[in-house]
């Protein structure tokens, strides 16, 4: 019964997370690595030394291997949890439902399809060499880095969708010329997405602990007499308790 209730909810949660993860990946990779540099600092960036690249490379390679051949860690998983939910070498099969997935075959299929499509395009399309051209700027002249999409902007529509959950704080300041409120002098924009879990859950807990600590400070002012007093009263109390309960 618990599974009947939990399963739809779990599926929904996993599916929603997957959707958001895809959007997050595109944002992080697309804004971070693609197109022209967006700032002076990014323009002056250079490649790290090979020793640093090697570390990242090993981690990346491990990810690729794991993605293509997940069966490789199945023994280890089985050792940890007893019975694993999947089995198989190239094609992974679920243990309790009929379902199979083969990352390796899928990737191979995709690569074959890519090669076929590229070949067909080579045959069908014109043989003329690729030519470079200006980006479409609507005839308004070359575009600056300011006209590239920003990460904040990329996430804004999704943030608007989940407005009630994340509750962003935003603020647009428009300052005008004194003469007329239609002659705008400057516009400033500010936006903050506060972490609601941090604010609602961690904040109060931390505050409570801090208050507890502050209260404790009053008990320990550094006076030896008082500490001796605490000891004396504690022993007396204990003795009285023992006498009464016995």
């Amino acid at each position: 019964m618990a599974a009947t209730v939990a399963m739809p909810v779990a599926v929904a949660a996993v599916a929603l997370t997957a959707g958001l993860a895809v959007a997050t990946f595109v944002k992080a990779f697309g804004v971070g690595f693609l197109a022209k540099p967006r700032s002076e600092a990014a323009m002056a960036a250079h490649e790290s030394p090979s020793t640093m690249l090697a570390g990242m490379g090993v981690a990346g390679l491990a990810c690729v291997v794991l993605a293509l051949w997940p069966a490789g860690i199945l023994p280890a998983v089985r050792a940890a949890v007893g019975e694993a939910a999947v089995s198989g070498e190239v094609t992974l099969r679920l243990t309790h439902v009929t379902g199979a997935l083969s990352p390796l075959l899928l990737t191979l299929g995709l690569v074959v399809a890519l090669v076929v499509v590229a070949g067909v395009v080579r045959l069908a399309a014109t043989r003329r060499a690729r030519r470079e051209a200006r980006l479409w700027d609507c005839g308004g002249g070359p575009m600056s880095a300011r006209m590239e999409y920003t990460a904040t902007s990329f996430a804004e529509p999704l943030q608007r969708v989940f407005d009630d959950v994340v509750q962003p704080e935003l603020d647009v300041d428009v300052s005008h010329h004194e003469e007329s409120r239609y002659l705008v002098r400057a516009v400033a924009y500010r936006r903050k997405v506060p972490d609601r879990i941090e604010r609602r859950l961690y904040g109060p807990v931390l505050d409570m602990i801090a208050a507890w600590g502050r209260a404790g400070r009053g008990l320990a002012p550094g006076s030896v007499h008082r500490y001796l007093g605490y000891g004396f009263y504690a022993v007396c109390g204990l003795l009285i308790l023992l006498t009464v309960t016995r």
């Binding site: 958001l20 990329f154 529509p157």
Partner: peptide, 22 residues
């Protein structure tokens, strides 16, 4: 996003917003 134009980014952002819900 790779084009670096406002339109490309705008389309990508809208498409991903829809995709994340679809």
């Amino acid at each position: 996003l790779d084009t670096g134009t406002a339109f490309g980014g705008m389309g990508a952002s809208r498409e991903m917003t829809i995709l994340a819900l679809v």
